[in-house]
Computed example of a mutant assay.
Amino acid sequence: MTPSPDPDPPFPTFADVLAADRRLDGVVRRTPLERSAWLSQRAKTDVLLKLELSQRTGSFKLRGAYNAVASLSPEARARGLVTASAGNHGQGVALAATLVGCRATVFVPADAPETKRRRIAGFGGDVRLVDGGYDDAHHEAEAFAARTGALYVHAFSDPAVVAGQGTVGLEILRERPDVRTLVVPVGGGGLIGGIGVVARAMGSGVRIIGAQTHETAAMHASLAAGRLTSPDYGETVCEGLSGDVDERSLALAMRVVDGIVLVSEDEVRRAIRRLYVEEGVVAEGSAAVAAAAVMQGALDGAEGPAAVVLTGGNVDARRLAGILCTDD
């Protein structure tokens, strides 16, 4: 007897990413991949910036959210969607739900940037504020799903979400198949996991380097321990990276990630300033962390060219002004 396929496969395949790419055609933007002169000088190899901050909703998150939502049956969509988010995934789910004609409820930490909360609502999401951090919002969203029957769209371990995020790597390696190193911000691990699936399929020996801050280091700590670890979380400008990982995202990271570099919050602020001055782009902290890693030597001795994923640009104006007006 032929065994039944796993109804909830643990990891997406390269074929899943290719299917996501087709599904996303005409929905997401094929974002620019541009050489950074100052980072190339620092790294002593060509460094390319993947500008996902120019994506619809201002971050890469629409890729995974739409792929997951568009993959659902009409009956599943009719139940309504629910998710937890630090802000960017919530925007992606809200817009995806609007595009396919269903409703979405998004639980976010009460201290999430006002810009992100406002945009979730603007894309049609029902925003629910939760005291605490991302993990608290996640627990509230799961309780809501259990209570109402709404379908939970996980921010980083749903295989369809991860496959959608993997299209970032697909675009990079299609445009520049000579890229040898990828530097990727890491929160829950969905983006780096999806990119890793692509890199392992398309690139022989492509290295995958993650970037986190000391205050958002759950994946770093878990990889180092070889098991799920919940570190202490400090005040951060990288709210999109804060929160625990889960078994599935950790297992995928163990397969595809070569290492994670930790940087300080001050180094992220410095990277935000340099990206603005040198590149003319506004990067939120959760994106600038990857540039900060390069500035602190993540590519020293690495084979190039390298691509750095700038994941989003949704930062409150007051926070951005405060960072830009501070001297290095």
Rank of each mutant, 00 (worst) to 15 (best):
F107N: 00
D126H: 14
R270E: 11
R176V: 09
H138G: 07
V309M: 04
V130M: 10
L170R: 12
R274E: 10
A150P: 12
G190Y: 06
A225G: 08
Y66A: 01
V100N: 10
E175D: 03
A211S: 15
P113R: 14
T311F: 09
A317P: 04
L275M: 05
S71I: 13
P10G: 10
R29Y: 03
V282L: 10
L18P: 00
D244S: 01
T31F: 01
S36K: 00
M254V: 07
A20M: 07
G124P: 08
R248S: 12
V237A: 15
A104W: 06
S36N: 03
G80W: 00
P109S: 14
L39D: 00
P74G: 01
T213R: 13
R63F: 05
V168N: 09
R42Q: 11
D246P: 14
A65I: 12
L170T: 03
S40I: 04
D327M: 02
T148D: 10
S85C: 07
V282Q: 01
A86W: 00
G194F: 04
G240R: 11
E239M: 02
T326M: 02
P3T: 01
R30N: 13
G125E: 03
A302M: 08
L310I: 15
K116Q: 10
G301H: 14
Q212G: 15
A251N: 03
G205K: 14
R269W: 02
Y233L: 03
A251G: 07
P32N: 07
V184Q: 14
R255G: 10
A283V: 05
A160H: 07
D258H: 11
S4Y: 08
A306T: 06
A225S: 13
A76L: 00
V206T: 15
G205Y: 14
C102D: 01
R319K: 04
G193W: 13
N88P: 03
G189H: 11
G243D: 00
A145Q: 05
R147L: 05
V281Y: 00
S59V: 01
V197G: 14
A163K: 08
A292K: 03
A298L: 10
Y233D: 02
A271W: 03
G210D: 14
G188C: 09
R23A: 13
S4C: 07
S242Y: 00
A211N: 13
E303D: 15
T181G: 03
A146V: 10
E140H: 11
D246H: 10
N67M: 12
V282F: 01
G226E: 05
A97Q: 12
G124E: 05
